[in-house]
Computed example of a mutant assay.
Amino acid sequence: MSPRKEEVTLKDIAEAVGKSVAAVSRALNNHDDISEETREYIKQVAREMGYAPTNTLGLILPALSPRDSDPYYSELLAGIAGAAAEREFDLLVSSCAPGPAEQWAYLRLINSRRVDGAIVARPRWRDSRIELLFEKKFPFVVIGDTNLTGNFLAVSEEAAAGAELVVEHLANQGHERIALVNTPLDLFFSSEFLVGFQRAMRRANLPVVEDFLTESDFTQRDGYRAGQTLLSKAETPTAIVAADDVVALGVMAAAQDQGLEIGQDLAVTGYGDILLAEYAQPPLTTVHRATYALGQQACRMLIARLLGEKLAQEQVIIKPSLVIRQSSDLALWL
């Protein structure tokens, strides 16, 4: 049975004419690298099928409780929405907890034909979301580092480089016992962050102590728990690297509850440079991730692909930078 007219997508037309989605998009948008004969043929098929673009992108966020909202997604969403508005595209946002239900959510997104393309954030190891979109030949863009290879759009941040920046900074401050509170290890970001952490420690001739490696989810509560665990050991670290700012704030709270002065008795660093990092007590040393720009760039690339426009790059890296504040050097107060 053929799709109902209001449900026809670029993928349907591509299958009908035996061309790629990109070629169909370029033909419908009158790009001259598609011959006039082919353009007219594709347009005729599109008209007969009742094609009408939705000009809508889909994004499925992980379901979070109100108390565990993640600033990363707020800023990322702002960047995506801003770029979508520039091209008069809409954004369909839904939420679903990771797991089997998430696969169904993506299938519904694809099969509902309400969106022209999808945005995937925080890739995981062998990410089933990306594999599904590949399998269905559905246009998408990935935001974040991934271990999957192939012909797809991606905007990444070099998590390993960010980890190296903070370790080098702490080593230069004279710290030798440096601990890591990583984010969940099913995320490829976390694996890359660990690689960068270990590489920088070896470069500084510092031991990577297994007892000083732990992980946390993206909440201040779990960061507090991880901080308490590290600070209750017989030998405690003099510096704690957290792979997320919210987690770092929890670590700082745990240390302060033990009577430690952050930046003097214990150095703490984060990752992300969220607004709260600058106004923490003391302000948090962190790695600046251009989250708004990541969302903005990813959205622009996906829309360009949907409209058949040529892209200078299909894989873009936005490099992180170090922001030094008082949580790693209390002397900055002076």
Score class of each variant (00 low, 15 high):
41 Y>Q: 06
329 D>F: 02
230 L>T: 08
211 D>H: 15
249 L>Y: 09
43 K>L: 03
284 L>Q: 08
18 G>R: 06
83 A>E: 07
93 V>P: 09
122 R>P: 02
220 Q>E: 13
99 G>W: 13
137 K>N: 08
247 V>E: 09
261 E>N: 02
273 D>W: 03
106 Y>S: 00
168 E>V: 00
229 T>R: 15
21 V>E: 04
218 F>T: 07
203 R>H: 10
103 Q>K: 12
149 T>E: 15
49 M>Y: 01
170 L>V: 05
7 E>S: 12
193 F>H: 11
31 H>L: 06
71 P>F: 13
121 A>C: 13
260 L>I: 08
133 L>N: 04
160 A>E: 03
125 W>P: 02
224 Y>F: 15
237 P>G: 04
6 E>K: 07
63 A>M: 07
306 L>E: 00
136 K>D: 15
79 G>C: 04
298 A>L: 07
56 T>M: 12
173 Q>V: 02
309 E>G: 03
73 Y>G: 00
105 A>D: 09
265 D>A: 01
178 I>M: 07
275 L>V: 13
56 T>K: 15
86 E>D: 15
293 A>N: 12
178 I>P: 01
271 Y>M: 11
153 L>T: 00
165 L>V: 06
246 V>M: 14
241 V>N: 02
142 V>Q: 01
92 L>M: 14
67 R>Q: 14
293 A>G: 00
319 K>N: 06
241 V>F: 10
239 A>W: 14
112 S>K: 05
4 R>Y: 06
169 H>N: 11
318 I>H: 03
237 P>Q: 06
181 V>T: 08
49 M>R: 02
87 R>Y: 14
253 A>R: 15
10 L>D: 02
200 A>W: 04
116 D>P: 03
159 A>Y: 12
204 A>D: 00
70 D>K: 10
89 F>C: 02
73 Y>H: 01
53 P>H: 10
147 N>G: 06
197 F>I: 05
286 T>F: 05
188 F>R: 01
26 R>Q: 07
136 K>F: 08
316 V>L: 13
30 N>R: 14
315 Q>S: 06
180 L>W: 03
260 L>W: 04
3 P>I: 09
192 E>D: 02
304 A>Q: 04
251 V>M: 06
220 Q>S: 15
188 F>A: 01
250 G>L: 13
325 R>N: 11
193 F>I: 11
9 T>G: 04
117 G>H: 04
256 Q>N: 06
26 R>K: 11
244 D>A: 10
323 V>T: 12
94 S>P: 10
210 E>G: 06
130 I>F: 09
282 P>G: 08
216 S>A: 14
201 M>A: 08
291 T>H: 01
328 S>K: 03
185 L>V: 15
21 V>M: 05
266 L>N: 01
213 L>S: 05
231 L>M: 08
302 L>Q: 05
329 D>N: 14
168 E>S: 10
63 A>F: 04
198 Q>P: 08
143 I>V: 14
203 R>C: 04
19 K>Q: 13
105 A>C: 12
214 T>M: 15
232 S>M: 11
115 V>L: 08
292 Y>H: 14
272 G>F: 06
29 N>G: 00
158 E>V: 09
294 L>M: 10
54 T>L: 02
9 T>Y: 01
42 I>R: 03
256 Q>K: 13
276 L>I: 07
177 R>H: 04
333 W>D: 05
304 A>R: 00
48 E>D: 14
99 G>C: 13
121 A>M: 12
